[in-house]
Amino acid sequence: MAGYTQGSGRPNQWLRNLNAKIASVPMILTAVVIFLGGTIWTVVYSFTNSKLLPRLSFVGFDQYERLWDAPRWLVSVQNLAIYGIFSLIFSLVIGFVLAALMDQKIRFENTFRTIMLYPFALSFIVTGLVWQWLLNPEFGIQSVVRSLGWESFTFDPLYNANIVIYGILIAALWQGTGLVMCLMLAGLRGIDEDIWKAARVDGIPMWKTYIFVVIPMMRGVFITTLVIIASGIVKVYDLVVAQTSGGPGIASEVPAKYVYDYMFQAQNLGQGFAASTMMLITVAIIIVPWAYLEFGGGRKRV
């Protein structure tokens, strides 16, 4: 009897919203097959000794041991760490300072914003190639300063293995700080005008208001920006390819390039899978706490 009522009450459980379900097939396939399936597939195959073609012969953590013994991988990780820390700090600081300046009810705000944001419309390839040219020691900034009379001036980050990653950092900051500025500016505009009035009445200097009142209030914007920058950092690839191709030597290699080279050029799939799994873990370390803070934990968002 119970079965009967259920059957007649909802006879078309699967047919309900049928059109919506059909329309969502591409989304479901992408989410389940590509994003979930693909990720699991890569992680599983990182434990095999696949070379030219993926093969399911498991070798435990061999690929990971080999990975962490490879000098090129260690250089890549170190580069990513330096690049990551500095680009986080600089883009947050520069982005916030610029946004604070833009928030002073200035004139020509639109012009300034347009100028600061246009590099973001350009690809990393274009960005990398422009800065490769500007940092060219023979013709670029170094030669110009030398021709002004400072003969010993040296500024050739792309040709000096010790500092090449900072050369890439300069280009990345040029491309990305405009976006951070825009996000921060949107955050600043969301601060209640009364806060500023109250601070002014209390005679608190402006910089103190920013540091002790406004920035803590913008916690959400900061965290979101941090996550955006951080997940972009892990993916950095095109910029390095365009600017240095990983050189001089292996001095500017990054993990994403390691993955690509091992998968598609060195025909050593297992290494590629292991390296990409390490990238996945890095992102998970960034994303999981953020997602927990943002969506889980039972805390209501303000």
Binding site: M27, A31, V32, F35, T39, V234, S276, I287
Partner: peptide, 27 residues
């Protein structure tokens, strides 16, 4: 037109946006 499970697939999709492309390229 929310249907059962739609939110789950959507969540996977959004989380997937953060996964480095390199992880999914070969599959």
């Amino acid at each position: 037109w929310r249907f059962k499970g739609a939110e789950l697939f959507f969540t996977i999709l959004i989380v997937g946006a953060f996964i480095p492309y390199q992880v999914m390229i070969y599959p």
